[in-house]
Design a protein around this nucleic acid. Structure first.
Lengths: 345, 345
DNA sequence: TTGAAAGCGATACCAC
DNA sequence: GTGGTATCGCTTTCAA
C-alpha cells in the first residue's frame, strides 16, 4: 500500500498558483461547472449554445486546464486503465515490439496502457499495489500472479485479468506461452539430425528460469523413450564463464546443444570455436528467438523462431473480456515455435 | 483526453458483489470509517485500542479490501506517482537495465513508477494525457516534450519534470545525453589510427534520428579542420540492404566506418567480410554501446562504451526536485563516452 | 478512543 | 440551454 507522507514541506512553494479545476474554468467563463463539463466532454444529451462553448473552451485554454483523471474515474466508478507490470528483466526486441504494438492497439480502443513499476513486491502484495489503481484490465506476463492475486484484482473491479505465461491461472484469461514447445522443437530437430547427447544451456542469471525451465523440460520430453540424453548446462552470460565451459566441453561428451536463445548460443559458439571445436561438426548448436544476429554468425545459427501473439489480437481479447467480464476464461496457445534450420546444426 | 464511455453494457455482470470500500470495512468491524482509516494507515496522531485494530484488519482482510488510490490522492491533493512515457522503440539492454534500476530506486523512496503507453500522441497532446494523471514528477526521455509541455505539466501539479535527452528544455531539469560525444570519440579514434575517409552509418529506421543525428554531427566536428572527411551512410537493419551496401563499398572509397551502434556494426562487418573485404585492413569499424556481441565478433569489435546515469542518482535528483520544486533546473551531462579499442579498428 | 462531517474534482440528474 | 447539487472513496479536523 502506498504511503502518502504528511505534506513534506508545506511552505516551500513560492505560491505556484494552484492547479486549475473545472470550477476555475466555470468562474472565468461565467458559467456553472456543469456547463463546463458538458462542453468539455461534448455531452450529446445536452445542447449548449455556440457562444457559451467558445467561452468555456477559451477559459480552459487560458488556464491551461487539464481534467483530473482520478476525480473523473472516482465519479465514473471505473477507468479505462489497462495495467501491466513493467518487465523486471531486460526485455528482448521481440517482447518490446509486442508491447509497443499492444499499447498502440489498446490505445486505438481508447484504453490507457500503463506499465506499473512493481519493484520488490511479490505475488499478492504486487496484486494489491496494482488493484489500488482500479484498472479495468490487468495483463500479467510470467508467473507473477496466483489465483488469490486474480481474486484481489477482480474484487477490486478489474473486469479482465489476462496472464501471459507458461501456465493458466484460475479465474484469469490465459495466453499460454508454451516454452516447452520451444525446447521440444529444438531437441527434436537435433535428434532428427542424428544427435544423441544433447546439452541444454540454462542461463545462470536470475529471473529467467520461468522461460528456461520449461524449455529444458520440453527438450527432455522430446527425446523421451529414445536413446538420446539431455543434459542441463548452466551458463552465465559472460565470456569467462563461456570459456570455462568450452574448456571442459569435450569432457561433457555432448554432440549438440540447445542454447536457450540466440544470444547465449552466440556466446557459446564463440567460446567453442575459440577452443578449436567445429560447429556443427563436433557440436551442433541451435538457439531460439530468431534474432538478426543468428543470421550474421558463421556458421549461420539454426534457431527456433517464436511467433508472439499479435498486439491487435490481444487488445481485442482484452476488450472482449472487459465488455463481458463473466464469460468463461479464454485459453489460447500463442507461442508459435518453428525451427529455422541454418548451418550450425 | 481519455473519453469514458457511458457504461458499455450495464446489465452484463452477474451481480459481482461490488468493490468493498472503507465503509464496508467499517460496517463489518462495527466502527466508523474514520477509525478504519486510522488503523489501516497506522496514523500515529491517534491511539486505537488493540482489539479495535484487530477487528478492522480482520474485516479488511475478509472483504479483500484494497484502498482506492484515486480517491486517496484526490483527497490528499497529491500523489506519489512518477510518470514516464513508455519507450516507443525497442529499448536496448542498456536502457532496460537503467529503467529497472531507476524503478527500484524510486520505489525505495516510496514513489510509484508508471510507464504511460502514449501512442500516437505528439508533443502537447501527450503532455496533457500525462498531466491528467497528476503525477508528482515526470521523466521524459528524448525529444517528446517542448517548453509548453513542461508548462502544462507544472501547472497541473507536477513538482518535477526531468528530460533525458540531447537537449535541455526550458523549465525542466535536464539529464543531457550528449550523443555528439559518442560520434566525436568514435571519429577521433578512427582519425588517430590514421583513417581519413570516415563513413558514419545511419539507421534507415524511423525514430532513431534523435540519436543518430547528433552522433553524425559529433563525428563531423571531430575531424573539422583536418584532411579527413565524414560521409553519411544510411543502412536499414536487414541483410539485403547490408549486402547492397557492401557490394558498392569499394566505390565509396572509405577506409573506416562508425556504425551507429554495435548491432549495425555487426551487420555491416558481416556483409563486408562476405564481400571479401578485410577488417580492419581495408576498412576499420567501430560501433557503440559496448554490447556483449562486440566481444564475440572476429575481429573483436571496437566500440564506444556508454555510461548511462545511475538509476539511484536519477532517483535522488527526482526526489530533490519534488521536495524543492522551485529550485533552479539542474543540468547534468550524464553520458560518458569512452572508446574501447579492440581489433576492428 | 471513537464518530460525525467537510471536502478533494468531476459528472449527471433534475429543476428552472 | 443552463445551474444547483448529490455523489464517488478517502482522509482529517473537530467534538464528544
Amino acid at each position: 500500500m502506498v504511503q502518502i507522507p504528511k505534506t513534506p514541506d508545506p511552505a516551500s512553494s513560492s505560491a505556484p498558483r494552484s492547479v486549475p479545476t473545472s470550477a476555475d474554468v466555470a468562474r472565468l467563463a461565467g458559467v456553472s461547472r456543469a456547463t463546463v463539463s458538458y462542453v468539455l466532454n461534448n455531452t450529446s444529451a445536452v445542447r449548449i449554445s455556440e457562444p457559451t462553448r467558445r467561452r468555456v473552451h477559451e477559459a480552459a485554454r487560458e488556464l491551461g486546464y487539464v481534467p483530473h483523471a482520478a476525480a473523473r474515474s472516482l465519479r465514473a466508478g471505473h477507468s479505462r486503465l489497462v495495467l501491466m507490470p513493467a518487465p523486471s528483466f531486460p526485455a528482448g526486441p521481440l517482447y518490446s515490439r509486442f508491447l509497443t504494438e499492444l499499447q498502440w492497439a489498446l490505445g486505438r480502443l481508447d484504453y490507457t496502457v500503463v506499465q506499473h513499476g512493481t519493484v520488490g513486491l511479490r505475488g499478492d502484495e504486487a496484486a494489491r499495489a496494482w488493484a489500488e489503481m482500479r484498472p479495468v484490465a490487468v495483463l500479467v506476463p510470467g508467473f507473477d500472479l496466483g489465483p488469490q492475486g486474480v481474486e484481489v484484482l477482480k474484487r477490486s473491479g478489474a473486469r479482465a485479468v489476462v496472464t501471459l505465461g507458461p501456465e493458466a491461472v484460475d479465474g484469469a484469461h490465459a495466453l499460454l506461452m508454451d516454452h516447452e514447445a520451444v525446447g521440444h522443437s529444438a531437441a527434436r530437430h537435433l535428434y532428427e539430425r542424428g544427435r544423441r547427447r544433447i546439452g541444454v544451456l540454462i542461463p545462470a542469471e536470475e529471473g529467467l528460469e520461468v522461460f528456461s525451465a520449461p524449455r529444458l523440460d520440453g527438450a527432455r520430453r522430446a527425446v523421451e523413450g529414445t536413446d538420446a540424453t539431455v543434459t542441463r548446462v548452466p551458463l552465465a552470460y559472460e565470456e569467462r564463464d563461456a570459456a570455462r565451459l568450452a574448456a571442459r566441453w569435450k569432457s561433457l561428451g555432448l554432440d549438440a546443444v540447445f542454447a536457450y536463445n540466440d544470444e547465449y548460443a552466440m556466446l557459446l559458439m564463440r567460446a567453442l570455436q575459440d577452443e578449436g571445436l567445429a560447429i556443427p561438426g563436433d557440436t551442433a548448436v541451435i538457439g531460439a528467438d530468431d534474432l538478426m544476429l543468428g543470421r550474421l554468425l558463421r556458421p549461420r545459427l539454426s534457431t527456433v523462431h517464436l511467433e508472439l501473439p499479435s498486439g491487435r489480437d490481444l487488445a481485442a481479447l482484452v476488450d472482449r473480456a472487459v465488455r463481458d467480464p463473466d464469460a468463461a476464461p479464454e485459453r489460447h496457445k500463442v507461442l508459435g515455435a518453428a525451427v529455422v534450420h541454418r548451418e550450425s546444426s
